[in-house]
Amino acid sequence: MAEIILSSGTRFEVQPGASILDAAAKANVFMPYSCKSGRCSTCKCKVLEGETTALQAEIGLSAEERAQGWILSCVRSASADVVLESEDLGGIELPVVKTLPCRISSLEKLAPDVLRVILRMPPTAEFNFLPGQYIDVIGPEGLRRSYSLASADAGSKTLELHIRAVEGGSMSAYWFGQAKVNDLIRLNGPLGTFFLRQTAGLDLVFLATGTGIAPVKAILETIPGLASEQRPKSVTVLWGGRVPTDLYIDIEAMSGDHRYVPVLSRADHGWTGKRGYVQDVLLGLQPDLTNASVYACGSDAMIRSAQDRVASAGLPANRFYSDAFVCSAPNSAN
């Protein structure tokens, strides 16, 4: 058995063959994660001392990152005591992960390839989550996919999902061709660490692509209810798509004092808004990021580019939070 020591000073043990991330959770130590399959880089941390072993391929790391000592805690174990540079969520207590039955309450097309699904939980179900987290939906024949919650709370016993069609996707075939109101499925969650951290007096920036707007919507709905001493100084939302129909809900009309910047990468001549990619448009606005926190959700390519660019533009270390959508894997969001 090896000991893991985080840069915060937190310590916990890991059994041979167990992932560092799972060992941390078992010890009630919460580290950032998203896909738990080695495909994104949310759980990326750096080995400062000691040796680790790969449990499966770390697709979410570049060769350069590997050479610099970075690992993905979701698919790495330890062969000896290890010191890691990693965020420790500290006093944040994550809600209990549960598996519950639920039924489809409604299905609504928001765009040609986006479906709004409302799930209804049993009246007696106790299910809590932090806005921004995701769930795994377990559908027909055990198909399992991850979807971010677009809901702000579970008080109504309903959960909102925004589901994009994935060409050739087995679960997409169910959602867009077979799913019916009142179908019985199961959910497992809440999962992930994409949720608000410190907000008081900060400039919050949200970057989203595609259905990455779903958890951002959930988080935005909670900000007006924050206590006055926890209110951010400003809130800016950049949502990117290819064509106008990709921006399928009205973020600007949501309650709350936020600046909304829609961005299209393949707009025709009739589009009068910003063009390109959200991370480029953000820097084109010449923001002062020294007092900011950036939350990014969507494609892994956007998140990687955004993290590098905002760091170069002055965003303080450990103020970038992300949830990457990776497809075609059992745990992937799609």
Rank of each mutant, 00 (worst) to 15 (best):
G201D: 11
Q198A: 14
Q230S: 10
G189H: 00
A208N: 01
T236A: 12
F206K: 15
E252F: 13
L226K: 04
L196V: 09
Q230F: 08
P224Q: 03
T199Q: 07
L238N: 03
G210R: 06
K217H: 12
D203R: 11
G212C: 06
T199G: 03
P244D: 15
D246S: 15
W239D: 01
A200E: 09
Y174G: 09
S228N: 08
S228G: 02
G241V: 04
F195C: 02
L187P: 03
A214S: 04
Q198V: 12
A200R: 06
F206S: 13
S170A: 14
P244C: 14
Y174C: 12
D183C: 08
P232R: 10
L247N: 06
V205Y: 11
L226Y: 03
T245M: 13
F195V: 00
L220K: 13
W175M: 06
T211F: 15
A218I: 11
Y174M: 10
T211Y: 15
D250L: 10
D246V: 12
S172N: 06
S234M: 11
Q230H: 08
L238A: 07
R197H: 14
V216N: 05
S234H: 09
I223K: 02
S172K: 10
A208I: 05
A227H: 05
L187C: 01
G225L: 05
I213P: 08
T199C: 08
Q230A: 13
F206V: 14
L202V: 11
Y174P: 04
P224Y: 05
K233Q: 15
A208S: 06
G201N: 11
I223Y: 00
L202W: 08
K180Y: 00
P215L: 05
A214N: 01
V205M: 04
A200C: 11
K233W: 04
G241E: 13
L247P: 08
I223D: 01
R231K: 15
F195N: 10
F176T: 05
P224W: 02
N182G: 00
N182V: 00
G177H: 03
A179V: 07
I223A: 02
D250G: 08
N188D: 03
K180C: 12
D246Q: 15
S234L: 14
A253K: 15
I219T: 00
G225Y: 04
A179G: 03
V181I: 13
I213K: 07
F194V: 06
I223T: 07
L202K: 15
T199I: 08
L226C: 06
G177S: 00
F195P: 02
V235T: 13
L207Q: 04
L226Q: 04
L247W: 14
L238F: 01
G210E: 13
A218V: 08
Y174S: 07
R231F: 00
G189C: 02
E221P: 00
D250F: 10
L184K: 01
G201V: 12
F195S: 04
L204N: 11
P215W: 03
L207R: 01
K180S: 14
P244N: 15
I249A: 08
Q178V: 07
G189L: 02
I251R: 05
E252W: 13
Y174K: 11
S172E: 02
W175V: 06
